[in-house]
Nucleic acid binder design. Structure first.
Lengths: 158, 158
DNA sequence: CTAAAGAAGTTGAAAGATTAACGAATATTA
DNA sequence: TAATATTCGTTAATCTTTCAACTTCTTTAG
């Protein structure tokens, strides 16, 4: 125990590391968002395009997509409605479960993905990957693994 | 160049590291938000309380607070209005610049901060700090420094 | 000193996110 | 198989964020 009330406050180094993580994660998201703006996409849009692009038949069940992107069903539903309006995606009924829907990439969605991806990768490189020597990137990755694992294990309304 | 169109795609290791960072930063924010909920605070509220708590006289100019918390002036203005309604903060006119306002912590805001901080620190420890051995935390911190530096240098509407 | 330009902060409307309630279909179990 | 509980996804209401316009005050330039 570090103090009279039993709280284990952060040491200077711990606090500095924590704040660095916070700062980087926020600035980075902002920057990526800005770099997507010229293409008329948000980070959210892009993430959905990535998920669908990497899926069998360019389609995913709404629930799975919601889980994969850490969004509530409601939020995803609104999001897909917007992307449908933008012509990036459409909803298709599911044969095997008549409650279910697939979100499916349209041709325009796929074209958009292929057009935007190189720019997005360049952005990720410029602002993140290429800022660290490979061994530091590796170290960072290794350090994050147990954190990710723990968070995953507690995430379902932990 | 890695491909016909000149895009330098991410290697497997780069992609894995990048996705780990993304995943951790999102799950972590969600988790911290959840842990603050019982106290009726959002991450946003908490961050403002931290900034004010650490400031001279528990007050900051609206603009400085907006910059410090990476929010637009408009967003901060609405945010402070809500916190004012909740009794955590109040607006005080600035003598030296009559356009200006301070956001000032109320007694209730300060009490709230002191009550909540230990829980928040415990949450940061549980989900982040205490998941990594000190040397890994140090490595992570070191790795993030150049990234943070670069992002800071480009952040003003880069 | 005055006119123009800039900075501080607010406002209202529009867009996005969250919450709770709901309808429809599937699973469970008694 | 009938009754109940769950899951899938949407909707409406509410809250938060963004965007653009605006007011007031300060600074700069002529």
């Amino acid at each position: 125990m570090d103090t009279e009330n039993g709280t284990r406050w952060l040491s200077d180094e711990e606090q500095a590391a924590w704040r660095a993580h916070l700062e980087v994660s926020r600035l980075l998201m902002h920057q990526l968002e800005r770099d997507l703006q010229p293409f008329g996409l948000t980070n959210n849009d892009y993430e959905i395009l990535v998920n669908l692009s990497e899926s069998e038949d360019h389609r995913m069940r709404m629930s799975d997509l919601a889980t994969a992107t850490l969004q509530s069903k409601s939020r995803l539903s609104h999001q897909i409605t917007r992307m449908e309006t933008a012509g990036l995606v459409r909803r298709v009924n599911c044969e095997s479960d008549r409650r279910g829907l697939y979100a499916v990439l349209t041709d325009h969605g796929w074209d958009t993905m292929r057009k935007v991806a190189p720019h997005h990768v360049a952005s990720v490189r410029e602002h993140f990957i290429d800022r660290l020597p490979p061994e530091d990137l590796k170290a960072l990755h290794q350090a994050l693994l147990p954190v990710a694992k723990h968070l995953r294990s507690t995430r379902g309304r932990g």
